[in-house]
Simulated assay, not measured.
Amino acid sequence: MNFGEDMLMEILARLGAKSLLIRFKGVSKEWYNVISRGALSRKILPPLMSGLFYQTLDPKGYTFVSNSKVANGGDMDLSLSFLPSHQRLSIVNCCNGLLLCRMGGSDWNQNQEFLHYIVCNPTTKKWVSLPKVHKSSCINGLVYDPLISDQFKVVRFLCCSPETSSIELQIFSSKTGKWVETTVFFGSPCYFWYGRQVVFSNGSLHVLFYPHHVLKYDIKKESCRLIELPPEVMKLSPIDCLGESCGYLHYAESDTSTIKIWMLVDWQRSEWVLKHCIIMQALRKQFPHSHWFRFNFLAFHPDLEVVFLEAQGFIFSYHLNSSKLEKFWTITQEGVPPFFTVTCVFSRCIHSFAH
């Protein structure tokens, strides 16, 4: 008997998460594709509570803001004050509700600098301190899939060599508690677009690669390949953004007049489709006194057709299907310049976490 994909998804969603992943992925190629896709995991896992951490100048270090409500009807209030030296930490990546934080220091006994990483769940206040590392890295990725395991991995991209088309990686596994080093090859003379966010999607880490690619690192196979960006994208810029939404990898490109959003529908053929084209002028009309605003793209919501934008100290949520712009939060305060670091976090309030 053949089911449509929607009906099959409804049936599979009634099964346990571990049974799906261990027993039923091998039934057929169709079942494998449906189970692997993010849409099914969104049915199995609890609903998302969306929010953002932004870096402040006060002793708290980071402030969390959200329009979600907790069970008692109040506002969701998350803080990083439970972490050691939380004022000096920087959030470098997040994945399925976990944060990857980093802090630098000096080891006077060995006369060398080191980096200290912490992985934490701000919902449960649990955290893990990773062994110190001494090599610098420009890009760091966090891998955590609660459908598969409560274990996590941290991947540090150390060095990229366009001449040999290779990347040096440092990988930490919470299962072993150790860092290991490896080298992978990607087959084309490209290099990192430094300082960009790493996106975990469908079992792989993704990061923008100059001049016109996305690097896809398969966690299980420990292999890399390059995905070409849409041909309309001429050159990467600091205001481009990569993210996952509704089970697919998305790419956003901004300029002074538009924000264009593409969705990757076939990574093997580097096939993208243009989903939305947001006109800046139309955004300004929805918000009074914003004729001089420039809207900067921040992040995609992973489960909804919603994106987050920033303009002059305000954070907005923009609903792609209805074209509705809503003020999410006001950051600008008297005496505080409107320059800040924003990290988008989407927590499923999962209470299991690696010890």
Rank of each mutant, 00 (worst) to 15 (best):
F300V: 06
F114H: 10
G313C: 12
L21C: 07
H276N: 11
P131H: 10
S129L: 07
T124S: 14
G4P: 06
K135I: 10
L147S: 12
A71G: 01
F297Q: 00
T123Q: 04
S166I: 07
F157M: 15
S173N: 06
M263H: 02
W31T: 03
P162Q: 11
F192H: 12
R88F: 07
K29F: 06
S323W: 13
L229K: 05
D218F: 04
C159E: 15
P302Q: 08
I139W: 01
L20E: 06
F295E: 01
S254A: 14
D107T: 02
T341V: 13
V65W: 06
V119P: 04
I315R: 09
M103E: 12
F185I: 04
S41C: 08
A39G: 00
Q333G: 03
S201G: 00
S106I: 15
K327S: 08
G104R: 15
F24C: 11
F53S: 01
F152S: 01
F186G: 00
F200Y: 15
C224Y: 09
D255I: 02
I171V: 15
V207Q: 09
V154P: 08
L8Q: 01
N202H: 08
I171P: 02
Y251C: 03
E244F: 09
F308H: 09
S347V: 14
M263F: 02
K216S: 13
K125M: 01
D255T: 03
V273N: 12
F346A: 10
D303S: 15
I148T: 12
G313D: 12
P122A: 01
G26F: 13
D6M: 09
P46S: 07
C241Q: 08
I35E: 06
L142G: 03
Q151F: 15
R284S: 08
Y191R: 14
T256R: 15
R156M: 13
V119K: 04
A311H: 11
K275T: 07
G105Q: 07
K324A: 11
L249Y: 03
K216E: 10
V342A: 14
D255H: 05
N296K: 12
V34K: 05
V214Y: 00
F152D: 02
V143L: 11
V34W: 05
A299D: 13
I148G: 01
S257N: 08
G61P: 05
P46V: 04
